[in-house]
Write a protein that binds this DNA or RNA. Structure first.
Lengths: 147, 147
DNA sequence: AATATAAAAGATAAAAACATCCTTTAAATT
DNA sequence: AATTTAAAGGATGTTTTTATCTTTTATATT
């Protein structure tokens, strides 16, 4: 058994978006093959996930020769939070750590307050982190998309 | 798809331990039926999880009439961190948020530093939170194990 | 010793997540 | 218009997680 902050689908989604964000102006489009290679993910599965991002208007997709995916206006303005929300829902940001159906200030689980601090920390970070920040790290060789 | 800080198995493990920690001196043992009822979990599945906790010496189990589970010496001294580690492993504390196999200071993912802060926050909290703390909240009616 | 109780162990099943493959649709090029 | 390219959509398969059921083992009581 293994706990995870994000699902694999979500990790692929984030890395795909970051990769697309690293592409230079004028050629900001990439096909699924290139994306999957860049982030070392299974191609078909990644394609499915990108479909969701397209449906949710974070990506644009173009069919046919020279087609591919690119980040939409909305995607460019969206915080990391939004990608997670679209793929994993927001249970990681609001759900009870111990599984209580109704966990709140008035009916808290045994670690409600301590966890709230962590969730808020996480939420704040995800709300303020942008693709641009992340892409910049990749572009300058400070951070990496694979291995 | 849904991300989760802890697996269900782990939540059941934690809640079971907390419930056992709330039992008064002299009758600190409970059977699987009582435990599962107290934390609103599936009985058979919870039993499996407790087996692991017994194997890892966080719990003692006694078979036969008046048998059941109780927290071991080691269990009583262990931080919440240990329960998670036993059931979910420590990937939540050390794993890469974006799935990089080798994610480190020298080869970081795009959110390595920001996530490190959160993981450290989480780890610190889990290392310092004790069953006793949690049980006290339950006993005083400040916090809850179910609904 | 026989019986009842309760956990351990093992087999099996259901659901969710992860993943692939094949067909269809849309767009560009010849 | 025919052909090629590439994503969308649908069906299907695999693995992991969650869950249940049955049999076995250990302990206490009669």
């Amino acid at each position: 058994i293994s706990a995870k902050m994000f699902s694999k689908a979500c990790k692929y989604a984030i890395n795909s978006m970051v990769f697309l964000a690293t592409l230079p102006e004028g050629q900001e489009r990439a096909g699924i093959k290139d994306i999957a290679f860049a982030i070392n993910s299974p191609e078909a599965f990644t394609a499915k996930i990108l479909q969701t991002l397209v449906r949710e208007n974070l990506l644009l997709s173009i069919k046919g020769p020279n087609g591919g995916f690119e980040i939409s206006e909305e995607g460019r303005k969206s915080p990391l939070y939004r990608i997670v929300q679209v793929i994993d829902g927001d249970s990681i940001f609001v759900g009870c750590a111990l599984g209580l159906q109704e966990c709140s200030e008035s009916h808290p689980c045994a670690v409600h307050h301590k966890f709230k601090a962590i969730r808020d920390h996480l939420t704040g970070m995800m709300m303020t982190t942008t693709l641009r920040d992340m892409a910049l790290g990749i572009q300058t060789g400070i951070s990496f998309l694979k291995t």
